[in-house]
Computed example of a mutant assay.
Amino acid sequence: MLVHPQFDPVALKLGPLAIHWYGLTYLVAFGLFLWLASLRVRQPWYTQAGWTRRDVEDLLFYGVLGVVVGGRLGYVLFYKPGYYLSHPLEVFAVWQGGMAFHGGMLGVLVAMALFARVRGRRFFDVTDVIAPCVPTGLASGRIGNFINGELWGRPADPGLPWAMVFPQSGSEVPRHPSPLYQFALEGLLLFVLLWLYARKPRATGQVSGAFLFGYGCFRFIAEYFRQPDSFLGPLALGLSMGQWLSLPMVVAGALIWFWARRRGA
């Protein structure tokens, strides 16, 4: 069986300043977004609509705020509302960890709505630009989770070649390396599918709908291999919180895609 390498979470120390691997993965995510979105707006149908590199830079600024604020509030409200109600000041202690993708996504949607309003653009025009550029950031974040040895998987068959012991779990039980599953599914595979799909002009909203549907499906599948949070455990029907939060994404993504297709036709 494999054993998690127990990486030092601190990548570099400069005197009192400690640079964590997880923070570096966020920088990589933002850098990849800037590069990919810049490629997106060079497509003829975007240049004709007046999109520029400056728009991409402003989108990144709005998006960073949405990710950080939404991700933190999502974790507080979805996962530990009782704890933070009793310890309200710890809501701001982001250095202690605790970010939720679904909250971050809602934060980004609010930020994109604000950007669209300020720039006089349609909401789905904005989200269609950014949707194919998001999965690489998700992939980067999952590498950060793996380096930290967190979000380990459920117990696995010891005969599984890649079954891995996570000492951080407090046991020697071989587990699925679920952060790597999510890296592959909702990161790399979703990126490839969306990037190829968005290479041709699509009806406004279809790329956004495809992202929601694809992420929701891949996250739902990956959650079967990820250990549910100990303070929550399995919820109704044996599903995890991540699965229950993914189901509305699947439904919304399908509805948006069909609505956009019908409207485009």
Rank of each mutant, 00 (worst) to 15 (best):
L39A: 12
E57S: 14
K80F: 13
G71E: 01
L60P: 09
W51L: 12
G50M: 06
R121A: 12
R40G: 01
V129H: 11
V68Q: 07
F101T: 02
V118M: 08
F123A: 05
Q43G: 03
D58F: 13
V41N: 11
W45D: 07
S86M: 15
G97H: 00
G82A: 14
P132D: 14
G63R: 08
F101Q: 11
Q96K: 13
C133R: 11
S38G: 10
F61R: 13
F61N: 15
G104I: 00
V118S: 07
I130T: 09
F92A: 08
R42N: 11
G97N: 08
Q43W: 02
P135R: 02
R42Y: 05
L77E: 06
V69P: 03
Q43Y: 04
V94M: 00
R40N: 03
A37Y: 01
M112E: 10
D128I: 05
G82E: 14
G71W: 00
G120T: 14
L65R: 11
D128R: 00
A131F: 13
H87E: 01
D58L: 13
V67F: 05
S38E: 10
A49M: 09
L85D: 12
A100N: 11
V129R: 04
Y46A: 09
F123V: 07
V76H: 13
P88A: 06
R53V: 15
T127M: 09
G107H: 10
R142F: 05
Y75M: 15
G74W: 00
R142V: 12
G97L: 02
G137M: 04
L106G: 13
V68G: 10
G71Y: 01
F123W: 05
R72W: 01
V118P: 03
Y79C: 05
L106I: 15
R40Q: 15
G74I: 12
T47L: 15
M99P: 01
D125Q: 15
D128F: 02
G50L: 03
G137C: 01
V108P: 09
P88W: 01
G63T: 07
A111W: 07
R54A: 11
F61G: 14
G98F: 02
G63N: 07
P44A: 04
K80G: 03
T136D: 05
W95L: 07
H102Q: 09
V56N: 00
D58H: 15
G50I: 02
F115N: 01
V118G: 04
L85K: 02
P81I: 08
V129P: 04
A93C: 08
K80V: 07
Y46M: 10
A131W: 06
Y62S: 08
R40C: 05
L114S: 08
D58I: 11
R117W: 13
S140P: 06
A139I: 01
G103F: 04
Q48T: 11
C133M: 00
L138C: 12
D58M: 11
G71T: 00
A49I: 12
P81G: 04
F124S: 08
G70I: 03
F92Q: 05
M112T: 05
S86N: 14
G141S: 11
W95A: 14
